[in-house]
Simulated scan of single mutants.
Amino acid sequence: MTAASTPELEADRQALIALIKEEAVFHGDFTLSSGKKATYYVDMRKLTLDHRAAPAIGRIILDLIRDVPGISSVGGLTLGADPIANSVMHESARTDAPLDAFVVRKEPKDHGRGRQIEGADVAGKRVIVVEDTSTTGQSALKAVEVLRRDGADVVAVAVIVDRKTGAQAAVEAAGLQWLAAIDLDDLGLDAQ
Results as ranks from 00 to 15, higher is better:
Asp153Ala: 13
Gln177Leu: 15
Glu131Tyr: 04
Gln138Glu: 08
Asp132Trp: 03
Thr133Gly: 03
Gly137Ile: 00
Val155Lys: 13
Lys142Glu: 00
Gly114Val: 13
Gly119Glu: 07
Ala170Ser: 15
Lys125His: 07
Ala173Ile: 14
Arg126Thr: 00
Ile128Leu: 06
Gly166Cys: 12
Arg126Ala: 00
Ala152Thr: 07
Gly124Asn: 04
Arg163Leu: 11
Val144His: 03
Ala156Phe: 14
Ala140Gly: 03
Val161Ser: 10
Arg115Phe: 05
Ile117Val: 10
Ala158Cys: 08
Lys164Cys: 14
Asp121Thr: 11
Asp153Glu: 11
Lys125Glu: 02
Gly114Cys: 12
Val146Ala: 11
Leu147Ile: 01
Gln138Lys: 06
Arg113Cys: 14
Arg126Ser: 09
Glu131Ser: 06
Gly175Glu: 13
Leu176Trp: 09
Gly114Met: 10
Lys142Phe: 00
Glu118Gly: 09
Ala167Met: 11
Arg149Thr: 13
Val144Ala: 06
Leu147Glu: 03
Gly175Ile: 11
Ser139Cys: 02
Val146Ile: 07
Gln168Glu: 14
Leu147Gln: 07
Gly119Pro: 06
Val155Thr: 15
Thr135Val: 04
Asp132Cys: 05
Ala120His: 03
Val159Lys: 06
Asp162Leu: 05
Glu118Met: 10
Asp132Lys: 07
Gln138Phe: 04
Ile117Thr: 05
Thr135Trp: 00
Lys164Leu: 14
Val154Met: 01
Val154Tyr: 07
Glu131Ile: 06
Val146Thr: 02
Lys142Thr: 03
Ala170Leu: 09
Gly166Asn: 09
Ala169Gln: 15
Leu147Lys: 01
Lys164Asp: 14
Gly119Trp: 01
Asp110Val: 13
Leu147Phe: 04
Asp162Gln: 10
Val161Gly: 08
Glu118Val: 11
Gly112Asp: 15
Ala152Trp: 02
Arg115Val: 08
Lys164Ala: 14
Ala173Glu: 15
Ile160Leu: 13
Val146Glu: 09
Ile160Cys: 07
Ser134Glu: 08
Ile117Asp: 05
Leu141Trp: 02
Trp178Ala: 14
Thr165Gln: 15
Ala143Cys: 03
Val129Glu: 02
Gln138Arg: 05
Ala173Asp: 15
Val161Pro: 05
Lys164Met: 14
Gly124Glu: 04
Thr133Pro: 01
Val171Tyr: 08
Ala143Gln: 02
Lys125Ile: 08
Ser134Tyr: 04
Val129Leu: 03
Asp110His: 13
Ala173Asn: 15
Val154Glu: 05
Ala143Met: 04
Asp153Leu: 13
Asp121Gln: 08
Ala123Val: 09
Arg163Trp: 07
Gly137Glu: 01
Ser134Gly: 07
Val154His: 04
Asp150Cys: 12
Ala143Glu: 06
Val127Leu: 02
Glu172Asn: 14
Ala174Gln: 11
Gln116Lys: 08
Gly114His: 11
Val171Cys: 11
Lys164Asn: 14
Val157Tyr: 00
Ser139Asp: 04
Thr165Leu: 12
Ala158Asn: 00
Gly112Ile: 08
Val159Thr: 13
Ala120Pro: 04
Gly137Phe: 05
Gly166Ile: 10
Lys125Arg: 04
Val159Glu: 07
His111Val: 13
Asp153His: 10
Ala156Arg: 09
Gly166Trp: 05
Lys142Asn: 03
Val157Gln: 00
Arg148Gln: 09
Arg126Leu: 06
Glu172His: 10
Arg148Gly: 03
Ala152Asp: 04
Val154Ala: 03
Asp150Tyr: 10
Ser134Gln: 10
Val159Ser: 06
Glu145Lys: 10
Leu141Pro: 06
Val127Cys: 01
